[in-house]
Write a protein that binds this DNA or RNA. Structure first.
Lengths: 96, 96
DNA sequence: CATGGGAGCGATATAAATATCGGCTGTTGG
DNA sequence: CCAACAGCCGATATTTATATCGCTCCCATG
């Protein structure tokens, strides 16, 4: 668990919003044609209003902090919240 | 039902073999990572030993004769036997 | 014997989503 | 004030399966 990377990743409102959306995909991504069990498709997050390249960078930040898991299927990448890492991080916060 | 196109499509052993394989996908395409309910992925048919471009042409012939149905998902195309057309064709054979 | 069509191949094009790059801006620490 | 850096964008690269192109070969029909 890269504590530093996690804190940096959480230091941006859009990335926090993405993590929040991923708590209840079925509430926020009803328009997705792929089954939500596979995760949420990267393109779905462009609803935050930023460009594709920027969204891709935000997702990469979340992923390298291991706050999300990814699964590639062909041209698509699907994202899920990584509650394991998040729980471990939350636990480690008690040290602060 | 394009009688002529169907006869031309059936006039090649590889295309007939493809149609036969599609009668029981679960017997012949166990290696496919996609669910077989979506159909059989085009690339699977390269097992006939021909090149990708040739296989693609054979599949296009079958498809334009409506002997198979296709479903595209991203970069993949999935094929199913079109038993409806085949039945109609079989019925029309009684005219010969 | 010519020729047109079907079959085959390698090479290249296409398509679609995502990733990366280069440049610009705004902010912050020294 | 300057340097570093995060964020942003448009443009371009990447990836992977499939489609198309240009060419050759072979056979059958005229």
């Amino acid at each position: 668990m890269d504590h530093d990377a996690i804190l940096k990743a959480l230091a941006h409102p859009v990335r926090r919003e993405i993590l929040n959306w991923l708590r209840e995909p079925e509430k926020h991504f009803t328009s997705q044609e792929h089954p939500l069990e596979m995760g949420v498709c990267a393109g779905q997050f462009e609803r935050c209003g930023l460009s594709q390249s920027t969204v891709s960078a935000h997702l990469a930040t979340l992923s390298s902090a291991d706050l999300v898991t990814t699964r590639r299927l062909g041209q698509w990448v699907f994202y899920k919240r990584n509650d394991e890492t998040i729980a471990a991080f939350r636990a480690s916060l008690s040290d602060i």
